[in-house]
């Protein structure tokens, strides 16, 4: 990729620059200030997140990306309130949050639908807890199911659905609570490439049509660039913010942009950040090389694969 003449990922067309200027004027939904978290293990304490700060504006789509072990899952779980933290602040609409709550919806990588509930009942779960009457909850749930295009499956059980459909139900279930923010922890990580691309399309459609702010964890660079307004790049050991990238690819997105110069420029930057050229010689791929010996017999018909 390096020999291609690409613009800088910082170059933004006037429209894109204008959009980011307006985006930053929107109200702040989520503000993270100096978030630090350490785990105590038998080998001493490990800093998982160190001094993480960022802001997310209303209806913004933020992707969090980083090498494995950078604590991106820990970050989103902390935001959801499923993990506690040592210092710093997490503010939702300016108010600090403690513990999990329906104001922050979450979609997990594993399928977390309740297997004993039908699709409709799964989506009704949060509504029931919120004290909605049965008929009102049912009516609302059906609307959300319709939004993710699963009306035909409203009375099916999760085990009858494909992986992609399960995640669509999970999204509908989280959205039915009308959370301020939707946290997604590698939600499409377990899906095959084709389903994954479709799901990305669905998610952008949903995002466009409802008032929702999304924080999306992924390790897939293309996915991050395709979905995000801004990408929060973390680095590992300890998990720190490396850069907050404003994606220069114009909105609305379409799969045809995957080969646009802005897209490739952003991808090159992400590659540099996540797989820095220097690091690999020390302990990366070259560090633990396979110990290969030629094991092809001398009289083999195909001597070389080249």
């Amino acid at each position: 990729m390096t020999h291609l003449a690409l613009p800088s990922y910082r170059d933004q067309s006037p429209e894109v620059a204008d959009r980011f200027a307006r985006l930053k004027e929107r109200p702040v939904i989520l503000e993270v200030k100096g978030l630090t978290k350490t785990f105590d293990t038998s080998q001493g304490s490990v800093t998982a997140l160190k001094d993480i700060s960022f802001r997310t504006h209303q209806r913004e789509f933020v992707c969090v990306i980083g090498p494995s072990g950078c604590g991106k899952s820990t970050l989103v779980r902390t935001l959801a309130g499923l993990e506690d933290y040592n210092s710093g602040e997490v503010l939702l609409d300016g108010k600090p949050v403690h513990g999990p709550g329906p104001d922050r919806g979450m979609v997990f990588q594993g399928y977390t639908l309740f297997p004993w509930r039908t699709v409709k009942k799964n989506v009704m779960f949060g509504l029931e807890l919120a004290g909605r009457s049965r008929t009102a909850a049912e009516e609302e749930a059906l609307q959300w199911i319709d939004l993710v295009g699963l009306t035909k499956f409203a009375n099916s059980y999760p085990h009858q659905l494909s992986g992609g459909m399960k995640q669509r139900v999970a999204i509908a279930r989280a959205l039915a609570n009308q959370p301020r923010i939707l946290l997604m922890d590698e939600p499409f990580g377990a899906l095959d490439a084709q389903t994954r691309a479709k799901m990305q399309g669905y998610l952008l459609e949903i995002w466009k049509n409802i008032d929702i702010t999304i924080v999306f964890i992924t390790h897939d660079l293309d996915e991050a660039i395709f979905l995000a307004d801004r990408i929060l790049v973390l680095k590992a050991h300890p998990g720190e913010v490396q850069e907050l990238i404003e994606v220069p690819v114009p909105q609305p997105r379409s799969p045809s942009q995957f080969l646009s110069p802005e897209f490739l420029a952003t991808k090159r930057r992400l590659e540099e950040l996540i797989h820095p050229p220097g690091a690999e010689t020390e302990e990366g791929i070259n560090g633990d090389r396979l110990n290969m010996v030629r094991m092809v017999p001398v009289n083999a018909k195909v001597e070389s694969v080249f």
Binding site: G81, P100, G101, G105, F108, F114, F125, L129, N177
Partner: peptide, 18 residues
């Protein structure tokens, strides 16, 4: 019981008795 189900329920607003 899969703890992920409990976590999912908590992010949907479930608490102790719920």
């Amino acid at each position: 019981l899969d703890p992920a189900l409990l976590e999912a329920a908590m992010t949907l607003g479930a608490r102790n008795a719920g």
